Every structure is written in structure tokens, then in C-alpha cells.
Simulated assay, not measured.
Amino acid sequence: MTIDAHQHFWQFDPVRDAWITEEMNVIRRDFLPADLAPLLKAAGIDACVAVQADQSEAETQFLVDCAKGSDIVKAVVGWVDLRSPDVAERLAFWAGEPLVKGFRHIVQGEPDDKFLLREDFNHGIAALKKHGFTYDVLVFPHQLPAVEQFVERHPEQPMVIDHLAKPYIKKKEIGDWTKHIRRIARSPHVHCKLSGMVTEADMQNWKEADFRPYLDTVLEAFGPERLMYGSDWPVCLLAADYARQKSIVGNFISALSASEQLCIMGNNAAAFYNIS
């Protein structure tokens, strides 16, 4: 099964979705499974993982409803307040919904570079394992030192770095990012998504060669057995249509063996998110 391991759905709300500014007009509308399905079919992708974009449990339920109404959505990465004293109760609730495979917090939006090291947040992370939930790590490169400590603190918790940790592709900065990514990849329970790259590049003028140093780094660090393809649709539309962004990963992995390509394009995501 080929899987897009990272995409979003929303019914656009200008207040709730204030991060989608007027300059992002192309994505200031509703995006639902019926919009994505033909794109996946054209790209040869069988299924997808819907990832939260709003920090509310209403978002988690919305994504579950999307999944239940569509054959393409096989997993949901939702949101709960992992800092809450009631986190165990909320996780037990969502454990009753088999489509919910894990959770994410938008750490990149937190002003504290050491947010991931907060005791209350780590208490919530420690509670995920009881129910077999995964955790998606969404950070900027300057937050990677905290990620290093964070992943070491939870050695048995399956985690995945979203969007290669958003390296500064447009600025062609790679040194510090590479150093931290290599250290994080030493932890075998951490994976990495090949996603979200086009919006970190010069969005209107990028070339495939711009991404190669970053892709080379994560391939060397994580190996093909811990990488997974993701589109970051519809956010990717700010810089590329579905087919064009997919071609970046497809062309990059074309030199790998057929089995390694299958791992990156679906098998790894299926195992990580327990998709059958």
C-alpha cells in the first residue's frame, strides 16, 4: 500500500485559521477528502494520514469524521492537551476510536524553545505508550536541541519528525540542522517525514536540486527504513501542486532498491501508524 503520511483537511474559518493569511489565498477555502481523492489516484497513492492543523479535540473529531466518510483516510493524528491533568482520561477516550493513531502539538508555535522539556508536557507524552499512540514532532530548527533531549527521555515512544524539522532551505542553511538531525536519528524509535519541503524553499522559484542536501542528510541519518513520504497537502499548494511536490521525493528515491522505495512510499507509514 502506498501512503501519503502527512496531509490536512479543514473547513476554512478565518478566525480559527488565522495562520492562513490573505497572501495564502490559494488555501483559504475548504479542503476535504473528496478534493484529495482524485489527486491521490492520479499520483498512484492508495491512502493517507490526516494530521491535525488546529489545536482542539474538535479537530480530532472532525478528522475522524472525515476518515469515516472516506476510503482514502486510514489514520488520524489528532490533538489533545498533553499538558492537562486529565490527559490520561482523554487518551483513554480516544483509544476507543481505532482511526486515531497518534497525536501532535504545534510546538513550532510555542515561544519557549524548551517547550518539549516541560514536565507537564512530558507527563502527557509518557501516557501515550499505554494506548500505543504515536507522536508527531513539529518544530523549527532552532528547537532541535530540545528535541535531542526530548527523544532520549522517551526511548520507547514512537516519534516522527515532521517536514524534516523545517530546515532553512530558502537560505541554504544546513550546518546546525544537520548536526542536530544526525544526533536525533541515533535514537531508533524516531522516524522522519519527507514532507513540507517546498514551503521552506523559495516558493515560487525552487528547483529540485535545492532539496538534495537535506534529503541526502536524512537518508544517511535515518536510512530508508525510518523515512516516510508525506505531501503536506493542501499547504504544499502554496509552492507546488500535488504531482510536482511528489516528484521531488520520487526522483530522489529512484536510485534506491525497489524494496527501499516501497518502505518510504508506504510500508514505513503503515507500520508506524498501524495501518492494515
Rank of each mutant, 00 (worst) to 15 (best):
T2K: 14
I3S: 01
I3M: 10
A5C: 09
Q7I: 05
Q7A: 10
F12I: 09
V15P: 06
V15I: 13
R16Y: 08
A18K: 04
L36C: 04
L36H: 06
L36P: 04
L36I: 13
P38K: 11
A43M: 09
A43K: 04
D46N: 09
C48S: 15
Q52I: 08
A58T: 12
T60C: 05
F62A: 09
L63I: 00
G69P: 08
I72T: 08
V73T: 04
A75M: 03
A75K: 03
G78A: 02
L82F: 09
R83A: 03
V87Y: 05
A88F: 06
L91T: 07
L99M: 11
L99W: 02
V100P: 08
F103I: 12
V107W: 04
P111W: 14
D113S: 04
D113Y: 09
L117C: 08
R118I: 01
E119S: 15
F121D: 04
F121A: 10
H123C: 13
A127V: 02
K129A: 14
H131I: 02
F133G: 05
F133W: 08
Y135Q: 07
V139I: 10
H142M: 09
H142L: 10
L144F: 15
L144V: 07
V147G: 07
Q149L: 15
E152A: 15
E152L: 15
R153S: 07
Q157A: 03
Q157D: 01
P158I: 11
M159Q: 01
D162L: 07
A165C: 13
Y168A: 14
I169Y: 12
K170N: 10
I174H: 13
G175M: 03
W177K: 06
P188T: 07
K193D: 00
K193M: 01
L194Q: 09
S195D: 03
S195G: 09
G196F: 13
G196S: 06
T199Y: 00
A201S: 13
N205P: 02
N205A: 12
W206I: 06
A209I: 03
P213K: 04
L215A: 00
A221D: 00
F222Y: 10
G223D: 05
P224I: 08
R226I: 02
M228T: 10
G230Q: 02
A239C: 02
A240T: 10
Y242M: 01
R244H: 15
K246F: 10
I248V: 15
G250I: 01
G250E: 07
G250Q: 15
F252A: 00
F252T: 03
Q261D: 12
M265L: 15
M265W: 14
N268V: 12
A270K: 14
Y273S: 08
